[in-house]
């Protein structure tokens, strides 16, 4: 009897925990959706959130740019789209700060209902990030900087095998700076990214910046997307897709092969892997 009771108890624990898993998964979404139903209205979607002070926020709809707006001095922005059809949409948001640095792109899919206004709020775009040196002499200071929402707390993650996490604060204009002392770190390749938090909101991770700790120092150059930019315009969009689609399942001339291997997946051809890499770095 005792053994049967034990079996049943353990079974119930498993069943409970498997249901709990689903609840936790849905609680980690960092925006909220509300639907305002008024009869009859034009189908509308409104996006509200935080970026950086006075940054330019770009909205993608189904992978193409449809709107750009400027955030206010408090980093708040709002974008409305009207005249949509009902259906599933893929939206993306990114921002360029006042120094021209870009956030990561925040993608999400939602289902829009005809005749209602759907409000997506609580969006918190990632901070922007830059480093002043691509290679830093061991023992020197590497400046990791960028912009976020004013007075946000910024967590800086530095990786090379093990992860170092430091925090710094953004000032009243949202500018933040962390001085990374390379005295006590090994020579080698590192990467860094940041995330902001303000009140109860947490942003996405910023793009990753890579640097090397070595015996010399080399200044950083302006960053374009690391991959996917086939036509070298510092964007990854329909132009790049069209170039890759032109060569889909065709044998590549030598000159094209070099470009494709450098900018996409290194295997000497255009196949699904190349498009997957392009889709990851998509800017619209």
């Amino acid at each position: 009897m005792k053994k049967i009771f034990l079996i049943l108890t353990i079974s119930l624990v498993f069943v409970f925990l498997s249901g709990f898993n689903e609840v936790v998964a849905s609680a980690t979404s960092n925006f909220s959706i509300s639907i305002v139903s008024e009869t009859p209205v034009e189908t509308t979607v409104i996006f509200r959130g935080k970026a950086q002070s006075r940054s330019y926020v770009t909205l993608l709809k189904d992978a193409q740019i449809v709107a750009v707006t400027q955030a206010d001095p408090n980093a708040n922005f709002e974008i409305s789209l009207t005249g949509l059809s009902a259906g599933i949409y893929s939206f993306g948001l990114w921002a360029d700060d006042t120094a021209g640095r870009r956030t990561s792109t925040y993608f999400f899919n939602i289902s829009i209902t005809e005749g209602v206004t759907t409000i997506i709020s609580g969006i918190f775009l990632s901070p922007t990030i830059a480093i002043d040196q691509a290679e830093v002499r061991q023992g020197d200071i590497l400046n990791i900087l960028g912009q976020s929402a004013p007075s946000a707390q910024v967590s800086v993650f530095i990786n090379s095998g093990e992860e170092i996490v430091k925090t710094t604060g953004a000032d009243n204009d949202g500018a933040w700076l962390y001085k990374f002392d390379t005295t006590s770190v090994d020579l080698g390749d590192y990467s860094t990214r940041v995330r902001a938090s303000k009140e109860s909101e947490i942003s996405d991770f910023s793009p990753t910046a890579s640097f090397k700790v070595s015996k010399k120092s080399v200044k950083s150059k302006k960053k374009c997307p690391a991959k996917g930019d086939l036509n070298n315009d510092c964007k990854v969009n329909l132009f790049d897709f069209s170039i890759a689609a032109y060569w889909w399942k065709k044998s590549l001339p030598k000159k094209i092969k070099k470009r494709v291997d450098r900018k996409l997946y290194r295997d000497g051809k255009i196949n699904l892997r190349d498009f997957s890499v392009m889709a990851y770095y998509w800017t619209g």
Partner: peptide, 25 residues
Amino acid sequence: VVNLWMERPGSDADKLIFSGLIPGG
């Protein structure tokens, strides 16, 4: 949910194959 097609489904192919892209995933 696919935004861009490299290859759309063909109605007269021996094999029905389609390839597509979802930027952002």
